[in-house]
Simulated assay, not measured.
Amino acid sequence: MASIFGHTILGGTIAALLLPERRHARWWAVAAACAFLPDADAIGYKLGVAYESLWGHRGLTHSLLAAVAVASLLALLSRMLPSRSAPPSGRLWLLLFLATASHGVLDAATTGGLGVAFFSPFDLERYFFPLRPIKVSPIGIRAFFSSWGLRVLASEALWVALPCMLLLVLRAGLVKRASEARKA
């Protein structure tokens, strides 16, 4: 798996790109949380759930169906908020879906594990991408604060944080250019 840092950086970046107005900053945090939410399945290790099972790590919680369910539930709950504070429903749903689904995308680009069950529960096969440049993160806090964890962070800085930063800088440049064009 990618680390919580890589997942939250990508989720937050997706949010800043889709809902760039500062008034939606709380949704940036929600998207970042959605991006690491699928790893809640790691509790299965303590409960004796087999890694390769439907409920095992990188199983159902990492699927596209789970991303649809999370996005749908949170978008529905957002309707209880005052209308001024909630973004447009369709855009919010897309953000929450992409943020949650991004988890499996990053995990499928890592160097370890059994792959991601993107199509669970309909297809239990686990998938990796052909290019897997992200170092797999250790599970557990103690193991993360080691040389292994540092290698993971360096890998994610290159393959996750840098592209996210470039996208945000590019977007800021495009917004500035559009604003200058309107003034001219």
Rank of each mutant, 00 (worst) to 15 (best):
A2V: 15
A2T: 07
S3T: 14
S3P: 10
I4W: 12
I4M: 07
I9S: 04
G11E: 01
T13N: 05
T13A: 12
A15K: 07
A16T: 09
L18N: 02
P20N: 05
E21V: 06
R23Q: 08
W27V: 00
V30S: 00
A32M: 15
A32G: 11
A33Y: 14
C34Y: 02
L37E: 07
L37N: 08
D39I: 07
G44C: 12
K46Y: 10
L47H: 06
G48Q: 02
G48N: 06
S53Y: 14
G59L: 05
G59V: 05
G59Q: 04
T61S: 13
H62T: 10
L65F: 07
L65Q: 00
A67W: 04
V68W: 10
A69L: 13
V70M: 05
L73F: 12
A75E: 10
L77G: 05
R79M: 07
R79V: 07
L81D: 15
P82E: 13
R84C: 14
S85K: 08
R91A: 11
L92V: 09
L96S: 09
L96Q: 11
L98S: 08
L98Y: 03
A101V: 01
L106I: 03
L106W: 02
D107R: 02
T111G: 07
L114Y: 07
L114G: 15
F118E: 03
F118L: 06
F118W: 15
P121C: 09
E125R: 15
E125D: 15
R126V: 00
R126I: 02
Y127P: 09
Y127H: 14
F128M: 05
F129S: 14
F129Y: 11
F129Q: 13
R132V: 08
P133Q: 04
P133V: 00
V136N: 14
V136G: 12
S137C: 12
P138I: 10
P138M: 15
I141M: 00
R142H: 10
A143E: 13
G149R: 01
L150V: 12
V152D: 00
V152R: 02
V152I: 03
A154S: 12
W159R: 09
W159E: 01
V160W: 00
A161L: 15
A161S: 08
A161H: 04
P163R: 07
V169K: 09
V175Y: 05
A181H: 13
A181G: 04
